[in-house]
Design a binder for these strands. Sequence first.
DNA 1: CTTGGCACTCACGCGTGTCGAGTGCCAAGT
DNA 2: ACTTGGCACTCGACACGCGTGAGTGCCAAG
Lengths: 343, 343
Amino acid sequence: MSEERRLAVLRAIVQDYVQTSEPVGSKALVERHHLGVSAATVRNDMALLEEEGLIHAPHTSAGRVPTDAGYRLFVDRLSAVKPMSAAEKTAISRFLEGAVDLDDVVDRTVRLLSMITRQVAVMQYPSLTRSTVRHIELVPIGQGRLMVVLIVNTGRVEQRVVESHLDLTSESGEAAVTQLRAGLNEELGGRPFSEAAVRLRSLAERFELDARDLVRLVVGALDDALVEEREERVVLAGTANLARFGTDFPLTIGPVLEALEEHVVLLTLLSTLGEDHDAVAVRIGRENAHIGLSSTSVVSTGYAAGSEVVAGLGVLGPTRMDYPTTMASVRAVARYVSHLLEP
Amino acid sequence: MSEERRLAVLRAIVQDYVQTSEPVGSKALVERHHLGVSAATVRNDMALLEEEGLIHAPHTSAGRVPTDAGYRLFVDRLSAVKPMSAAEKTAISRFLEGAVDLDDVVDRTVRLLSMITRQVAVMQYPSLTRSTVRHIELVPIGQGRLMVVLIVNTGRVEQRVVESHLDLTSESGEAAVTQLRAGLNEELGGRPFSEAAVRLRSLAERFELDARDLVRLVVGALDDALVEEREERVVLAGTANLARFGTDFPLTIGPVLEALEEHVVLLTLLSTLGEDHDAVAVRIGRENAHIGLSSTSVVSTGYAAGSEVVAGLGVLGPTRMDYPTTMASVRAVARYVSHLLEP
DNA sequence: CTTGGCACTCACGCGTGTCGAGTGCCAAGT
DNA sequence: ACTTGGCACTCGACACGCGTGAGTGCCAAG
């Protein structure tokens, strides 16, 4: 029996199953694909594939369904990323072009991705820890309160309000603020966050004693923003697509929705970073660790701002998913987003 | 037959149905509530209630279920808003207190609200059109690009980037920016948005000719931010709770999820504003206009920043919902949020 | 106006029977 | 050493029929 044909059978099973979402039997298989052999032969191959743990029969005398391992083999060795049509490409760029700010980019991206894949799209905001400081602005707002605005190279903006007992409207107060602003920008402007956090701490000493208090507060706020992992924001769209899966499949959407609400979980799903740039990562079924996602797959990749990969985006769908097409869409969208954040 | 007792019967039906989620029959009713009359009498009352369109039998010889009109009557005349326990109150304030910025407030609020009501929580960001300008900052970022940062009294921050061919690093460029910044803040600072938009338009003339171009761009960006309805952002949480409803009920969650993704729909759901301050609005079933929400109810109210109501929040659940408790929770949370945004 | 009685109506659950797709195995063919 | 057609077998899906029980509507008496 040829190894080669067996894999062809696996490929055919995956393809048929993805399309029909029903267990596929030997007979149907030979009818739909010209494998050049008879159903009986395919049955023998299937028995072997089952032994290898690549496919699985839901019950005696039903067709076969790929296992997680089967899908894994499929994406690793049996599929080519489907090229996208020119029409799709222009549609993508059209849709993303009108964005006015970062929030809008993220918003449009997840919407777009969920629409073209008809699945749930997930996107992480550009990670602060991988960004650089563009500018820091201090805005006095009434009484002793000061708003600290941190502008990041990706276009992301964070703000905090600090309360000081210093009178910021007084001559000396204004001077202190001006001095601090200048100092902060000189010291931190253009620096990557990792570096900025360190420099920040040594800043306090340079100021006059009565301003120290203010400096400490501002530094604290910035430090908070720089370090805080919590602020790794995630946005998603297309959850309505879950309902579609639900109908054809033994997938109870409750646990999935729960998982999607825990942003921490989503972040780990997207943590494909650090690996090769352009690679699309696929996590299949149980590989996702989180129960509740054990019958879903995640296709994700990183996107860049400039040359640096700053965060991830991807889609989540049933393990029974059209991997080649989905991977193509995710990659294409990630590229356009990177392009958009270029400058 | 006493009108009064008939309403008592309706109340009992609603309460039982909410609790058991099964059609309630005459016998069960007299057992669980001491109405002082027999089942047969209750049956007569039920027949009348059905004639009035307040209840409805899913099929012959099954119990009765309240109609939308039945629920409406119930919330309007038969229920009292349930007081909250002290423990709940402190839990609410505890949970909301740690918020560091507006995003965080909104995020925590929806999460909290979805947790305590075990339903889907929705919250609108403070509407720009009902806010006042606190400060406008112009930040040059490389080349000819300028970031316009708009800070709103609610703590909300909007930003836009404009590109000018003016060299902003030059002496004259910097001067123009400084002048413009001062002008903008003097003219718009502290103004409500409606007023600000008007004043904005007359600003361009005052500047020297070579800066006009820049001014026009900045004004355009601000105008965009001030007027743009699109930017009425909405956040939601607790969609996983939909799965729970789904199990006991003839509620297919697909359409609901779809409705929830259309933020425009959500906004109209929350448009309880303009009415009395402290009132909690309830929209029951078909009253929601949007199909797909025809078997859900929305309980919403406004929240304030200072003395002005700035936006809405609420929850969405099945029509078969514990209205008194839900209304109490929504009101309590709205009050705490208003308190939080006070200054 | 209330009440007990009574006949009637369905939805629901359960067991049975049929149907058919699909399998595993085997013996014969290449 | 594989491939192939044949055949018995398995088991889920679906349909049908029936009994059960909750709940109703109506009526005549209190």
